[in-house]
Write a protein that binds this DNA or RNA. Sequence first.
DNA 1: ACGCCCACCTGGAGGC
DNA 2: TGCCTCCAGGTGGGCG
Length: 243
Amino acid sequence: MPAKFASKVEGRTVRAIDRRAKYLLIRLDDGQTLIAHLGMSGRMTLHDAASAAAHPLDRHDHVVFDIEDGWQVRFNDARRFGLMLLVADEALPKHKFFKGLGPEPLDETFDGPALAERLAGRKTPIKAALLDQKTLVGVGNIYACEALFLAGISPRRSAHTVRGERAAKLVETIKQVLLRSIDDGGSSLRDHVQPGGELGYFQTRFNVYDRAGIACPTRGCGKTVRRLVQAGRSTFYCARCQR
DNA sequence: ACGCCCACCTGGAGGC
DNA sequence: TGCCTCCAGGTGGGCG
């Protein structure tokens, strides 16, 4: 870990841990916040003294926090798309990471009309709009695909046409997918693990994601799941069930 | 302002 | 075994 960064956090106490979008906000006792993002391959794991001793550092353990009683928090990120950054609290709301971010999907006030309003006038495909964190935050490639499938909405559909009942249904499925995945400890495709190192198992419940060529799970549908590329990202969907 | 495309970086899987 | 290509949970920036 860079010495300069280490000296800035050494001896600090964590007051609270919050989250905005996919950024973790670790509030320190000196008026600074440590922003952390896991990117694609990042993980943060917690080790007690025995576990820390038994597991030597991995080459991708880029940041290691020694906390109380020999415990460690390790930030491991093979692809280094993640980030850690110290920002003064007063500068946080103005930071470029947070400017223009859309609403939190699990917020009670996020409903069909709220989503439709964010999509109004936008010609990009609904799939691309869902990945765009200024539409709403927290939805990535897996959950965009899964929510669209459950809502019966084609990923190619022009974003502005998702309104009314359709928008309400999509909001419902977004919330459902996120809550179920949280319940299952996330989706462990390759790198994701929970803080204790346990795998998530929401991936066992995917209807379409990473299932190209496999039968659509809708009873009686008979079509196979298809893959297409939108805005450079893989989209998985059923052409019969999603319109 | 919007929508698209690329870069960032490493590693795993599959083909030959 | 090795080498090559393709693909991967995200996002900021630059382009037309």
